[in-house]
Nucleic acid binder design. Structure first.
Length: 817
DNA sequence: AGTGCAACTCTTTTT
DNA sequence: GAGTTGCACT
C-alpha cells in the first residue's frame, strides 16, 4: 500500500506542472490504477474493471480530463453505454466534473440510440427512410405474418407459400423467425451473407433464409427498421461507403465503450467501423478505450460473447491493459461470497477483487418453506427495518425471472410498502398505449403497415380485413391517379398507405367507401396540426436539430410552442379511442384513459413538430424500461428488479430470492449456460453494499404444480463459513459448519422474541387471523429436529396449514376474545 | 363484426 | 394457473 501511494504521488507530482488546480482536485481522489487509466493516451486501452471498482468514475473523469486539460473538442468524443440510465448518469457526472457548456456536447448514448441517431442523420447515404420508426418484437412478428399475404398477391397464388405448413403463419411460427432474424442481425448476418448458414441455429426452419429475405424487403419497402438494424445498418454502410466512413471518423476521435463484455458481434463490428485502424494513415488513429469485466458477462443469449474482451487486442494492435481490482462498494464479507461463486468458472481471465471497506455484517441465508414465506420474509425485513429508520430505497429485491415479481408486488401492496419495478415493459405493451403509439408511428411514416392495421378499425368503423388488405395491396403497387377535383395527375409514393386510402375511396363502394374516406379525412385533420412545420416533411430538415438533441436541454429550448402532448390528446379524442376506452374503463374497472393521459404527459417535453415526433418515438422505443418511472424517482421505495436489470446498479441492502435449482440457475445441465448463470449470481451479490440476504424455498408453485426444490448449487459454492443460516437446513447441509443464527439479533427483520415468548404467544387453542387464509385455531404445536417451534392451524375456510411462527410473526395475528 | 368458449403454451434474461 | 389464441357461432 505504501509503495503504491508513493507511485501515486510520483505520478501526480510529475503532472502537476501541466494540470490545472481544478483537475488536481478530481485526480487526487483516484487510486493509482484509476489515475493511470484517466491520463492514458495513444494506443488502445482495455480496462478490466471488477464490480464496484469505480469504472464510471474513470470514464467520466477521463472525459472531463480530455476536455478540460487536453483541449479536446467535446464534439469529437463518443461514449457508449449499455442503458439510457447509465448514459444519463455519465453525462451528468462528466458535466459536474467539468462544468462548462461544451461538456454537454459529448455524445453519450447506448449502442442502439447511437445507431438510431446515425441512421436518421445519414438516412440518405444508408438508404433508409429518414422518417423510420423502430418496430418492437410484437410488430416484427405481425409483419412476418403479413409476409404470407404479400407473396400470395405478388405471385398470383402459384408460388409455394413461404411457411412450411401451407397455412397462414401462426403467431408462434412467426415468433420463431423473428427471434432468429434478430439473432442473425446480432451476428451482422444478412440473408445473402455466405456465413449465414454456417451457424447451426439458422439451418432451421428450412426456409429461414427466404423468410428473412422477404422480411428485409418488406421492412425496407415500408421504410421502417428493427432493433438489429440500428446496429447492423450502420456497420454495413460504414463498410461500403468510404465518404461516410471518412466523415464519421473525422468527427469521433475519442471513443469509449462501457460494459464491453456484453457487446455482441454487430456492436464489435460497429466499433471497428467507427475507428480508423485499418486505413493507411496509422499515426492519427482514433483513441479507443473499452471498459469491461468478463465475470459480469450476462447477455450471451443476445449474441454477446465474452471472447470479445480477449479478441480486443487482436483487432486493436498494441492494446494497453489496466486492471481495476479494488472494490469500494461492498463489505469484505459480501465480496468473499461473490468470489467463492465465480471462482468455479473455468472460462475467465481471472482477477482478485480486494475489498477496500472495513468488515460488516455476515450475509444471511434463509431457508424457507415456500414462496409465500419468502414473500413475507422480504416484506418483514423491509417493514421492520423501516420502523427502525431504514429507508425503503435501501432495499432491492432481486429475482431471476419477471414472473417472480408478482408475489412481491401483491404483498407489498397489501402491506402498503412502496415499491418500484424496474424493467417491466408493461406500460408500453398496454393495448391502449400501443394504439396511440401506432397512430404516432403512422403519422411519422405513412408506409407503416403494421401501425395502419392496428388503428384503421379501432374503434370499429366497419372497415374489415378485406378492405384493409385491398388498401395495402393498392399501396404496394406503383400507381398514379387523377386528383378527383382537378384532373391533374398526381404521383404518390409507393407504399404510402394514407395516399392509398384516398385513392381507394374512389374505388370502394357503400359503407367501406364512406368510412375509408372519413378515416382519410381524420388523418388529414390530425396531420394539419403539424402545418407550421411543412418543410420538415420527408426531407432531412431535422438533421441539424437531431445532431445532439438527445434529450431535455436541447428540447426545452424549443418548447416555446405547442407540445406533442396536444397531438396525443387530439388523436385520442378524434379517433374515438378516448371514448372507446372510457366506456371500457367503466365496464371493466380499468384505468386505460389514465394511461393514455400518462403517455401524453411524457410527451410534454417534445415540440409539436415532425422532429419532435421522431425524437419522442425514438425515446420510447429505445428506452421502454426506464421512462415510466420518471415521476416517481423522488419517492422512497423498495426496488423490485430482475438480476439482469441490476447491472451497473448498487443498493445498501439486497435480497436475492429464489436461490433454488431450476429457478436460479434455471438450467443446470449445460455447463456453458451454468457459467453464465454463475456470472449472473456474481453480479447479483456484488450489487450489495452493506447487507446481503439470500432466500431459498423448499417448495415452490410452478405452472400450477407444486415442486419440491433443491437449493441452488450456488449456495453450496458460497460455502458455509461466512454465512449465517436461518430456517430449516436442507438435509445436504446437516452437520455442516454453518453458523446458525437466531432471529433475536438486532438489525435483522425479526423481533426480539425468544423461543419461549413465541411459544407462549402461539399456544394451542389460540385464535389466529392470517391475511391470506382468514380465521383459524391453532390445532397443534410441535418442536422440530432443529428446535424450531411449529404450529398447525386449522382455518375456517382454508383448510389446515403449518407455520413456523418465528418467521411469520407479522402475518400470524392472535385474535383476542 | 363481435362474442364466447375451448385449447393451448408458458418461464429466461433486453436494447 | 393465467393469459392468450383460435375457432365457431350469432
Amino acid at each position: 500500500m505504501a509503495i503504491e501511494d508513493e507511485i501515486l504521488s510520483d505520478i501526480t507530482d510529475s503532472q502537476n506542472t501541466e494540470v490545472s488546480d481544478h483537475a488536481k482536485e478530481y485526480l487526487s481522489v483516484l487510486n493509482p490504477e484509476q489515475y493511470e487509466a484517466v491520463v492514458h493516451e495513444g494506443s488502445p486501452l482495455l480496462i478490466l474493471a471488477g464490480a464496484g471498482s469505480g469504472k464510471t468514475r474513470v470514464i467520466t473523469t477521463k472525459i472531463a480530463y480530455l476536455i478540460g486539460e487536453k483541449g479536446v473538442n467535446p464534439h469529437s468524443i463518443l461514449a457508449v453505454t449499455f442503458t439510457k440510465k447509465a448514459a444519463a448518469e455519465m453525462h451528468e457526472r462528466a458535466i459536474a466534473l467539468e462544468p462548462r457548456e461544451e461538456t454537454r456536447q459529448v455524445m453519450i448514448r447506448t449502442f442502439h440510440s447511437f445507431g438510431a441517431w446515425f441512421l436518421r442523420v445519414y438516412a440518405e447515404s444508408v438508404g433508409v427512410d429518414p422518417n423510420f420508426t423502430v418496430y418492437d418484437d410484437e410488430d416484427v412478428i405481425s409483419l412476418i405474418q403479413k409476409l404470407d399475404l404479400d407473396f400470395h398477391e405478388q405471385e398470383k397464388k402459384s408460388r409455394k407459400r413461404l411457411n412450411e405448413s401451407g397455412d397462414k403463419m401462426t403467431k408462434k411460427e412467426a415468433a420463431v423467425y423473428a427471434r432468429k432474424i434478430s439473432l442473425a442481425k446480432d451476428y451482422c448476418l444478412r440473408p445473402d451473407s455466405e456465413d449465414l448458414l454456417e451457424r447451426s441455429e439458422f439451418l432451421e426452419p428450412q426456409d429461414f433464409k427466404d423468410v428473412y429475405a422477404a422480411y428485409e424487403n418488406r421492412l425496407r419497402a415500408i421504410g421502417n427498421v428493427d432493433f438489429g438494424d440500428l446496429i447492423m445498418l450502420p456497420v454495413l454502410s460504414l463498410r461500403e461507403n468510404k465518404n461516410l466512413r471518412d466523415k464519421i471518423r473525422k468527427r469521433f476521435r475519442y471513443i469509449m465503450v462501457d460494459e464491453y463484455q456484453d457487446t455482441n458481434l454487430a456492436q464489435f463490428e460497429l466499433l471497428k467501423a467507427l475507428c480508423d485502424f485499418d486505413e493507411t494513415d496509422k499515426t492519427e488513429h482514433t483513441y479507443v478505450c473499452v471498459v469491461g469485466d468478463d465475470d459480469q458477462s450476462i447477455y450471451k443469449f443476445r449474441g454477446a460473447e465474452v471472447e470479445h474482451i480477449l479478441k480486443f487486442k487482436d483487432d486493436f494492435p498494441n492494446t494497453d491493459l489496466i486492471r481495476l481490482e479494488r472494490n469500494y462498494r461492498s463489505t469484505p464479507e459480501i465480496l468473499k461470497l461473490a468470489d467463492n461463486v465465480v471462482a468455479n468458472n473455468q472460462n475467465r481471465l481471472g482477477k482478485t477483487l480486494r475489498a477496500e471497506r472495513g468488515s460488516g455484517k455476515t450475509p444471511v441465508l434463509a431457508f424457507l418453506p415456500n414462496q409465500d414465506d419468502e414473500v413475507h420474509f422480504c416484506a418483514d425485513l423491509v417493514q421492520k427495518t423501516h420502523a427502525m429508520g431504514v429507508s425503503y430505497s435501501d432495499w432491492a429485491i432481486l429475482y431471476r425471472t419477471n414472473a417472480q415479481s408478482m408475489g412481491f408486488e401483491s404483498e407489498f401492496v397489501r402491506k402498503k410498502i412502496p415499491y418500484i419495478i424496474v424493467g417491466s415493459l408493461k406500460f408500453f405493451e398496454r393495448e391502449e398505449v400501443k394504439d396511440i403509439v401506432a397512430w404516432l408511428e403512422l403519422l411519422a411514416n405513412h408506409k407503416n403497415e403494421i401501425a395502419f392495421h392496428r388503428i384503421i378499425n379501432k374503434p370499429a368503423r366497419g372497415i374489415g380485413n378485406k378492405t384493409q388488405d385491398s388498401i395495402v395491396v393498392c399501396a404496394q403497387n406503383e400507381w398514379q391517379t387523377t386528383g378527383e377535383n382537378g384532373g391533374e395527375t398526381q404521383n404518390f409514393e409507393k407504399n404510402d398507405i394514407i395516399a392509398a386510402c384516398c385513392y381507394m375511396t374512389g374505388r370502394l363502394s357503400g359503407k367501406s367507401k364512406s368510412e375509408v374516406a372519413k378515416f382519410a379525412e381524420l388523418i388529414e385533420e390530425i396531420e394539419s396540426l403539424f402545418e407550421e412545420d411543412t418543410t420538415a416533411g420527408g426531407e432531412l430538415a431535422g438533421q441539424v436539430l437531431s445532431e445532439n438533441a438527445d434529450s431535455s436541454d436541447e428540447l426545452k429550448k424549443r418548447e416555446s410552442k405547442k407540445t406533442l402532448a396536444e397531438l396525443i390528446e387530439a388523436i385520442a379524442k378524434k379517433s374515438g379511442l378516448a371514448q372507446y376506452y372510457e366506456d371500457r374503463d367503466k365496464e371493466e374497472h380499468t384505468f386505460r384513459v389514465e394511461n393514455i393521459q400518462e403517455l401524453a404527459n411524457s410527451a410534454v417535453p417534445y415540440p409539436l413538430a415532425r422532429q419532435g415526433l421522431l425524437d419522442f418515438l425514438d425515446n420510447i422505443q429505445l428506452d421502454r424500461t426506464l421512462s415510466n418511472q420518471d415521476e416517481d424517482v423522488a419517492e422512497d421505495a423498495v426496488t423490485l428488479i430482475t438480476l439482469h436489470n441490476t447491472k451497473g446498479l448498487e443498493f445498501n441492502r439486497v435480497v436475492m430470492t429464489g436461490m433454488e435449482e431450476g429457478v436460479f440457475p434455471r438450467n443446470g445441465d449445460d455447463e456453458e449456460e451454468m457459467e453464465e448463470e454463475r456470472r449472473l449470481c456474481y453480479v447479483g451479490i456484488t450489487r450489495a453494499k452493506n447487507e446481503l440476504y439470500l432466500t431459498s424455498c423448499a417448495v415452490r408453485r410452478m405452472y400450477g404444480h407444486i415442486e419440491y426444490m433443491k437449493c441452488s448449487p450456488f449456495l453450496l459454492e458460497m460455502g458455509t463459513e461466512g454465512v449465517k443460516a436461518i430456517g430449516q437446513l436442507p438435509s445436504r447441509y446437516r452437520g455442516s459448519s454453518f453458523y446458525q443464527g437466531d432471529y433475536g439479533e438486532r438489525g435483522l427483520s425479526h423481533p426480539d422474541f425468544g423461543t419461549d415468548e413465541i411459544q407462549k404467544k402461539y399456544y394451542r387453542g389460540a385464535k389466529i387471523y392470517h391475511d391470506d387464509y382468514g380465521y383459524g385455531i391453532i390445532a397443534n404445536t410441535t418442536v422440530n429436529d432443529d428446535g424450531e417451534y411449529a404450529i398447525t392451524v386449522s382455518f375456517e375456510n382454508s383448510g389446515i396449514k403449518r407455520f413456523l411462527p418465528k418467521y411469520q410473526e407479522s402475518s400470524l395475528m392472535i385474535v383476542k376474545d
